[in-house]
Amino acid sequence: MGGYAAYVWPSYGIAALVLIGLLIHSWTDARRLEAEVARLRELGSDIRRPADMRGDAP
């Protein structure tokens, strides 16, 4: 890396760390919350979604 390895590799490392961290967080968050919705629905505590969540647009 022509003497610049100490700057080039950390740049790629930080980019990878932030992007992979964001991706994993987005993925696990969606999975966890969707599983919780499914669990509550199985408990029979589901309700009809109110009109603003159904989004029946004109």
Binding site: L23, D29, E34, V37, R41
Partner: peptide, 25 residues
């Protein structure tokens, strides 16, 4: 990747809203 993360986060946020509605009910 931005698109992928947007879809995943939207799914999480939407499930979060539904959870909130279910708990309030």
């Amino acid at each position: 990747l931005f698109g992928v993360m947007m879809i995943l986060r939207l799914r999480g946020l939407y499930a979060g809203r539904r959870l909130r509605q279910m708990r309030l009910a």
